[in-house]
């Protein structure tokens, strides 16, 4: 159904080991531009590790992985291709990982200036536009520690978007947030999905997954057990493991 050449992520038979632990087992994953893929699974199932392979924060030991036409090699031997991928792929982390010594605006302008070589005024203008878009334009001169968790995560989103990425990775973006702040972050992500951004999201927010995902991938013990459109995966899961996982997380 998808033309291989236009896929932004092509992952084939990917395997990852942590010492004797086999963390990812023969993962095949293809992502088409504009697609929103949500990865679900129990903690320790390997879902975070999987998306961290896409921008090379984790090495893999065998298989092939191509991101936006750049090939990542096993065992961290990718060199320049990895650098190129990272400038094209944005990431939002569970713990935000904002730079505490820089103001909000400087957090957002750092990479465009140092990596893309933009001058300060261009970077500032773009940063202000992005902060406005995620609803925190008035906090631009504050430091991250002066913001709430939800605000920090929205700054982190703006910071990643400032690089004009072709693909966005979200590693449990709301798991470290107080419940009342989850909504504002999900709203910003929803907005982004509507605009057509390609997104891979690891999350425990099943309602959100059902709503924004084009496809849901369920991982169990390092293997993709089942994947499909959200209606199918959530309402008519075929695998027993998917069923029992969903029964556990959807109960409350």
């Amino acid at each position: 159904m998808n033309d291989n050449a236009q896929q932004i992520v092509r992952m084939q038979q990917l395997n990852k080991h942590f010492g004797s632990l086999h963390v990812l087992k023969n993962i095949d994953m293809h992502i088409t531009p504009g697609e929103v893929v949500v990865v679900i699974g129990a903690s320790g199932s390997g879902k975070s590790t999987l998306i961290r392979c896409i921008n090379g924060l984790e090495e893999f030991q065998s298989g092939s992985l191509e991101v936006d036409g750049n090939e990542l090699l096993p065992n961290g031997k990718s060199g320049q291709a990895l650098q190129t991928i990272r400038t094209e792929v944005g990431m939002v982390f569970q713990q935000f990982n904002l730079f505490p010594h820089l103001s909000v605006i400087d957090n957002v302008t750092l990479a465009p200036m140092k990596v893309r070589g933009w001058n300060r005024s261009d970077a500032l203008e773009a940063a202000k536009r992005l902060l406005d878009r995620v609803g925190i334009a008035d906090q631009a001169d504050k430091y991250p520690s002066q913001l709430s968790g939800g605000q920090q995560q929205r700054v982190a989103l703006a910071r990643a978007l400032a690089m004009e990425p072709r693909l966005m990775l979200f590693d449990e973006p709301t798991s470290a947030l107080d419940p009342e702040m989850i909504g504002e972050v999900l709203d910003a992500m929803r907005e982004l999905a509507k605009e057509g951004m390609t997104m891979v999201i690891v999350t425990h927010e099943m309602g959100f997954a059902r709503e924004v995902a084009d496809r849901v991938v369920f991982i169990h013990q390092g293997e993709i057990t089942e994947e499909g459109p959200p209606e199918q995966l959530f309402d008519k899961p075929r695998h027993e493991r998917t069923q029992s996982f969903l029964a556990r997380v959807l109960k409350h």
Binding site: M91, Q95, N97, L110, V115, A160, M163
Partner: peptide, 18 residues
């Protein structure tokens, strides 16, 4: 310095030196 600081930097495309 927390590992996440380095990861966030690299994920933005900064080189290890940067």
């Amino acid at each position: 310095i927390e590992r996440g600081q380095r990861e966030a930097s690299l994920s933005l495309g900064l080189s290890r030196t940067q």
